[in-house]
């Protein structure tokens, strides 16, 4: 198990230190009746041999991390000195691939997570209040968006928001703008992806909260009722404190899942407007014929570091809990 986690990370790290070979060039003189010209051509045999001998490529140290498609310190510095206002600066920076992807990934995570928490909780309370006979079917329906393959689920939505699809056509009608396309503008693409994200992850928080609601002690609720608490007050002061551990668990899971958002971007073909960190790696590896292992490796390592930062507080707390339980 450790083998399967640790090895790929090490492998990605090693790959990130190398850069693919340049093609071997031959310069030959081509002499014709009107004088000689120098012709540069690619020596395919030598290139292939070089690639076979050292598949990793040339050693490049941490330069890959610093180049334009990753941390890009030089470009950020330039942007800082060249741009007049902060807005200019950020525009400049978010045009760099890594920062652009980071911006989308973080926005997506930051918007989807709280919304899913709140909506999931409200729906859980709503379903809890339904008559028993309706609970089963509503849970069944609710589970679908979560369990269906992300790629497939987002495709279904994508076809609906297509210019000729039902939602897309309706939106056109409402705004009376036949050229309106959800895919054309950055803001609308982001909104679309975020809406999809909420649709897809809402069931998870709903189910967990719903299960949690079943464990709320009845006596406490009754006591609060006798003390004259309204339904609203009972929810705020009795139910929510009881669910705090669940809330932190769901938040953790949502953060992890949202941070690696990937499939919707592929199936919405939204890469022109929104790229996530995962998508960048995918794109590097998909580079036809000549995958950029070095670049993908570097982004992978940076992503892992990002996740470590995100999860560190939670991990420390779990460790402390574990030690408390152990003694």
């Amino acid at each position: 198990m450790i083998l399967f986690i640790a090895l790929p990370i090490i492998s990605a790290f090693v790959q990130s230190l190398f850069i693919q070979h340049e093609q071997v060039l031959i310069v030959s003189q081509n002499c014709g009746p009107f004088g000689c010209s120098e012709v540069t051509s690619i020596d395919f045999e030598k290139t292939i041999k070089l690639r076979q001998d050292a598949p990793l490529g040339k050693y490049n140290g941490i330069n890959t991390y610093l180049n334009r498609s990753h941390l890009a310190f030089a470009e950020v510095g330039n942007a800082w000195s060249a741009s007049e206002t902060l807005v200019d600066f950020f525009n400049e920076v978010f045009n760099l691939p890594l920062y652009g992807a980071l911006a989308f990934t973080l926005t997506y995570t930051a918007v989807v997570t709280p919304l899913v928490l709140i909506l999931g909780f409200s729906i859980a309370i709503g379903v809890n209040g339904l008559p028993n006979i309706m609970k089963g079917p509503s849970i069944f329906v609710s589970l679908l968006p979560f369990l269906v393959t992300p790629l497939v689920g987002s495709l279904i939505l994508f076809w609906m928001v297509d210019g000729d699809g039902i939602i897309g056509a309706t939106i056109k009608l409402i705004f009376n703008d036949p050229d309106l396309s959800l895919k054309a503008s950055t803001a609308l693409t982001w909104t679309m992806l975020i809406v999809y994200g909420i649709w897809h992850t809402l069931p998870f928080s709903f189910i967990v909260f719903y299960a949690g609601l079943q464990t709320v002690p009845f006596e406490t609720l009754e006591a609060a009722l006798i003390d004259g608490a309204t339904k609203w007050q009972r929810t705020i002061y009795v139910v929510i404190p009881h669910l705090v551990p669940l809330i932190s668990f769901v938040t953790l899971m949502l953060l992890m899942d949202n941070f690696r958002v990937f499939e919707p971007i592929v199936s919405f073909s939204a890469e022109a407007h929104a790229r996530s960190l995962s998508w960048i790696i995918y794109n590097d590896l998909r580079e036809s014929g000549n995958p950029l292992y070095g670049s993908a490796g570097a982004t992978s390592i940076l992503t892992i570091i990002g996740i470590a930062f995100l999860l560190l507080p939670v991990l420390i707390r779990t460790w402390k809990d574990f030690k408390l339980k152990g003694h």
């Binding site: 198990m1 986690i5 990370i9 492998s11 990605a12 790959q15 899971m253 941070f259 690696r260 779990t318």
Partner: peptide
């Protein structure tokens, strides 16, 4: 639990990029 958590947290694509070469 930690191992499960780490696997859950890591984008699978980062692992795949390590496996691929």
């Amino acid at each position: 639990l930690m191992a499960a958590l780490i696997f859950r947290a890591m984008p699978h694509i980062t692992l795949v990029s390590g496996y691929l070469l």
